[in-house]
Design a protein around this nucleic acid. Sequence first.
RNA 1: GGUCCCGUAGCUCAGCUGGAUAGAGCAACUGCCUUCUAAGCAGUAGGCCACAGGUUCGAAUCCUGUCGGGAUCACCA
Length: 504
Amino acid sequence: LGHLRNIFLGASVAEILRAVGHKVVRTQVINDRGIHICKSMLAWEKFSPVNARGERETPANTGLKGDKLVGKYYVEFDRALQIEAKAIMAQWQSGNFSDTPTSIEEAVLNFEKAKEGKDEKAIAALDDKIKELAKNQTAILREAKEMLVKWEARDPQVYLLWTTMNGWVYAGFDQTYAQMGVSFDKLYYESDTFLLGKDQVMEGIKSGVFYQKPDGSVWIDLTADGLDEKLVLRSDGTAVYMTQDIGTAIDRFKDFPDLHGMVYTVGNEQDYHFKVLFLILQKLGYAWANNCFHLSYGMVDLPSGKMKSREGTVVDADDLMAEVIEKAKEMTQERGHLEGLDNDAREQLYTQIGLGGLKYYLLKVDPKKRMLFNPEESIDLTGNTGPFLQYAHARISTLLEKAAYVPTPLSLTAPMRPEEKEIIKQLALFGTTLEEAAKGYSPALLANYSYELVKLYNTFYQSVKIVIEPDAAVRQFRLSLSATVRQVLAQALGLLGVEAPQRM
RNA sequence: GGUCCCGUAGCUCAGCUGGAUAGAGCAACUGCCUUCUAAGCAGUAGGCCACAGGUUCGAAUCCUGUCGGGAUCACCA
């Protein structure tokens, strides 16, 4: 869900910035490198069943989406890790500390002592610490780490496996993005950019921005800036998230030299990370670092509480989209204004309504705020929802069609009813709303604007005759007012990534 | 514990660069389709804007404190 908010938000903000005249390049960093990939690879090698033809599981022979298959083995890895860690902890409990550093032995003894003391907080803290220590003692995690080192050294075998499994993931992602209706101008792969990041770190050591500890790890001291010391390279020489992000940022400015700045659409749990990243880039001497902005959006909660991937309480993007489209189909068939539409057009409409509703639901809330995702409300059609706006658009469309409307400029001097004046006022606000949305990186402003506009229009629509208005001048005025509303609405919806159907 | 974010109707959210009776939607209840799509419209009910101070002619909005919720402080990403 967080991922959906991220994608839709990023896509919408890009469109909004374009609409106010900025040149926008939309990029995405593909997280194709790191210990997490190695975990999946290792688990797949270890646990994937072999079929009669001697093949391990693949998207082709299981029918699973590639990213799902790889994700499955990430979970498998974690399960195996837990089991091994538990066994190790059991050993420690029984007093067996062979092959264990004395520091761990001490920690366990402290833990036992704390339990006698009944200090809940201390017990919990030590418990976490011991679990962490146990995990680090497992053979399987060690293997994964070794794999990462091999990967960074371009070990052919590891690299082949990595290429294969990554291919599966990308294929899965492509499918999902296509369904979402979003695309990127350029993708950056961590596997390409982390090396540049490492180079930067090396140079940064020379220039004194970073320093190396005796164990070989590289750090930056940000205590003078009110932050902490931050690791930028592990003691085994491998890159961390930050290393890669440094490289990616620089890479992008190399690719697009006239770039003014960058907007990072990333969840607010990474506020600290970006504070540090921008500071590092400044210290490395990149002037554009001052024009980097972290568009930090709030988490998406479920009514049932926090989502945890390990507990299976996450909402899967593909499933959710399918569900929302299915629901749109049911509701649309119930209402039925579909005469004359062929099957393809109908299916397309269900998708437009379902996804439009989902996008609008996620975008109508101020990005900065955390929001609650209520699965039932996300597919609502009434009130402040995507389908409500789409419906207004469709209704005006058929109205204009019936009237055989010929576009004429909207006369602002014509005698007007109060409802009509209100609409004109709201229409006049579009420009400033768009500017504010761009300035504040907030599609929510456009969403709320559109909703207001449609409410005003609906009031008008219900209270007057339009097509059947006998007075030709009045009729023409109302038609061109309707056409203007439709045009603005279509533009606003477009900026939100919500499609505006001609009928529904 | 340090840092950051949040607290507005039963629920989800607007409003927050100070301005008059604080707005929507959902849920509940009333009405309105032999006029253009009722996925709509009109209406009723529902609020000490977390709490306490302060600034101001004026505070939901700005400041301080308290309480409550969340995030973060990894050789994870």
